[in-house]
Simulated assay, not measured.
Amino acid sequence: MTSQRVAQPAATARPRAASVPALLRRVHAPTILVLILLVVAWAIIAARTSPYVLPSPEKVGRTLLDLARSGDLWAHVAATLYRVTAGFLLGTALALVLGLLASSRQTARGVLRDINAVLNATSVFVWIVLALIWFGLTDRAPIFTTLMITIPVLLSNVFEGIDNLDRKFLEMAQVYRFGPYATFFHITVPSLVPYLFAGMRVAFALGLRVSVVAEIFGVSTGVGYMMNYARDTLRTDAVFAWAVVLILMMLLLDNLVFAPLLRWLTRWR
């Protein structure tokens, strides 16, 4: 009896001990620790290096605060988000239209797959140069570049969703004599939503990076323009500050917008 009484508290203590590592993982403690060590190493190296080559974390932090206080941060972030969102939404709408065509005609699906393969193989710099030639130094250049980069990603996920359609639903649509449009909107689209949102999550992040590159060459506002301007004026601390802004934009949008939407859609499915 005594051994059983002693063993019982030990058994109940094990889950508590095991929950500590789980809690640390939940709050990303290992990742935070690694980031702290990287910042410390950065500070040590920066102290022995020219500020032009590698500014200190403290200097970058002060520059970031100055940008936020002056309002330049929010204005240029808004300009970049506008261009990315416009190109991204156009790409999503076009992917849905092409998905309708691909789901209704087998021949069209084959042609679109081949075209998508060509788009995937086209370098982003091709679209940037063409955008500058066609649209000049306007917002349409980065919007067009974002559109052409996001379409292949979205189309690939649309094709995957079409290939994994439940044939029973399609047979049911035939029994009830659904037309191509009714079949697409009532059968195909609900089945494509999880695949489409998974592609949208990747496409938006890719479009954001591409739009920033296009801003370096084509416009006078935005995160990419400000990074290039900081480089031209020998403000390496501002280059690092805008790089931090870009990383934070990607992380916040992915974790606060796309990840919750994808979890909800997967649970709904």
Score class of each variant (00 low, 15 high):
A205W: 01
T233W: 09
D237F: 05
V244P: 00
V257N: 11
L256G: 10
V219Y: 07
A238S: 13
N255M: 13
L256D: 06
L246P: 00
M227N: 00
R209A: 08
D232Y: 11
L208K: 07
V245F: 05
D237W: 08
G224R: 03
R209M: 09
T221S: 14
T221I: 07
L253D: 02
G207Y: 12
L256Q: 12
T221F: 10
R209W: 01
D254R: 07
M227P: 01
G207I: 12
A214Y: 08
V257R: 10
A238I: 02
L251A: 12
G224I: 05
M226V: 02
R209D: 01
S211G: 12
W242E: 02
W242D: 02
D254V: 09
V213I: 15
V223Q: 04
V223S: 02
T236N: 08
V219E: 07
M227T: 09
L253H: 05
V245C: 06
D237H: 08
F217I: 12
L248A: 15
E215A: 10
N228P: 00
L253R: 02
R235G: 04
N255S: 15
E215G: 09
L256Y: 11
M227H: 03
A243Q: 05
R235L: 06
G224D: 06
I216Y: 12
V212F: 07
D254W: 09
F240T: 05
D232G: 03
V212I: 15
A230R: 04
D232V: 06
V245P: 02
G207W: 12
L252M: 14
L256R: 13
I247R: 01
V212Y: 06
N228G: 03
V245N: 05
N255V: 07
L246M: 14
T221K: 12
